[in-house]
Nucleic acid binder design. Structure first.
Lengths: 233, 233
DNA sequence: AAGTGGTCTAGACCACCTT
DNA sequence: AGGTGGTCTAGACCACTTG
């Protein structure tokens, strides 16, 4: 270590991370107390604390009061994904974005949607199907349910012009979010709308939001064959 | 606001987040300077700074020196996933974990694997196929390439007893990671190994790691039909 | 009971960006 | 050139957990 070099908290973090990588601190090992590391690196304990907090969040170390800091034995692989607004995703790929409303109907909540929201009783929901296109080719098909109790304004939105996706993002903040990924087989209507061969494998993003305890919306976004979602660096 | 209440930085974060949700600060709005918020909430600027850093990381606000802090107009949906060690994932579901080595061969790097690693020239790699089982039923099929230059030790590991997955996690730290998700159709060998109907849709996790500039391993983990990956809260 | 991490504070200086 | 966020420091006290 170059003691002359001023260490920012990110610098301290990188130094500790490097030591974990090169086995100076091996998996399971107990690290020195923050104060000792601070003394060694010539910075304040606060700075070490900030660095450690980051490493802990990243799943590299585990910290316990009195117990000290330990290198995790089975480091968790933790990856963060940005789930983009479809329009922006398309435009960022340099393609022309288009949008088509397929259907829009008021319906009573079906059971599987109630399950996603975790509610016991059905209510009136707006059921919207829409297609997002990139360069005039199908890109993502969304099947969305919007709770008209928490979000009555949606009933007066012209969904032929603006996608529910964007309207909600701009006007309806949420307090809780669940996201999951899966794969489904292209069949029937889905295959037709996406112009995908029947039987091809499609990537699905499912997203559900609440405001407080109240459901807002749940959507299944089915992507065209070949779609791939990558973690942010 | 109860001025008497002591605000931790998480408390400040939650208060600001609440104000964004209830439109006290609407999308696009400029927030007061950290110092003013600190004065209002009765805490030090450092505390506000810590809170804001977190909100910024979460994608809720955008901060610029001199420019101030703004509520993001299109808040990014950001979700973090833990990609588990398969054994632990299975065991956490209360199932019995088993593992079978399918094949293990030294081969020259094929082009698509070179592309994943971002390398120009082939080298000798260990190509491993293995099956993870839950309650004796196929669960995840992995197709893995391990660079024998960066990781020669792998050649003396008994992969019939220990999965490459676990050995690598325990013995080989990485400095860079790429993760992506996609969907593939069950066909040929893959369908057979997973006992999945030909044509069903399978969820795929692709993971590639490096140590410095050197490739370590890349793996395609194909899950059984119905597999779903959820974000951590 | 004592050790270690978690957080707060007040002040200082730096770095970046807008004007 | 000036304003605002970014970070550091030293010291203090708190809170959890373990021996």
């Amino acid at each position: 270590m170059n003691v002359e070099t001023r260490m920012s908290w990110t610098g301290v973090r990188d130094e500790i991370r490097a030591r974990i990588l090169n086995r100076t601190y091996a998996p399971g090992d107990k690290l020195p107390r923050d104060e000792d590391i601070a003394a060694e690196l010539g910075c304040a304990r606060t700075t070490v604390q900030r660095a450690m907090q980051d490493l802990s969040l990243a799943g590299l170390v585990e910290r316990k009061r009195k117990g000290g800091t330990h290198v995790r034995t089975d480091p968790v692989t933790r990856a963060t994904f940005d789930i983009p607004i479809t329009r922006r995703e398309v435009e960022q790929r340099g393609a022309k974005y288009n949008y088509q409303l397929i259907s829009r109907e008021l319906e009573e909540t079906p059971i599987e949607v109630m399950a996603r929201f975790g509610i016991q009783r059905p209510s009136r929901m707006l059921h919207v199907k829409a297609l997002h296109l990139a360069d005039n080719r199908p890109y993502i098909l969304e099947d969305r349910w919007i709770d008209t109790t928490s979000t009555p304004e949606i009933l007066s939105v012209d969904l032929t012009r603006e996608s529910a996706n964007e309207w909600l993002v701009r006007h309806k903040p949420y307090s809780r979010l669940e996201v999951s990924f899966s794969a489904v087989k292209a069949e029937g209507e889905t295959a037709k709308h996406l112009s995908a061969p029947v039987g091809s494998a499609l990537f699905v993003i499912e997203r559900t939001t609440w405001i407080g305890p109240a459901p807002i919306t749940t959507v299944q976004a089915v992507a065209v064959p070949g779609y791939q979602l990558s973690a942010r660096n």
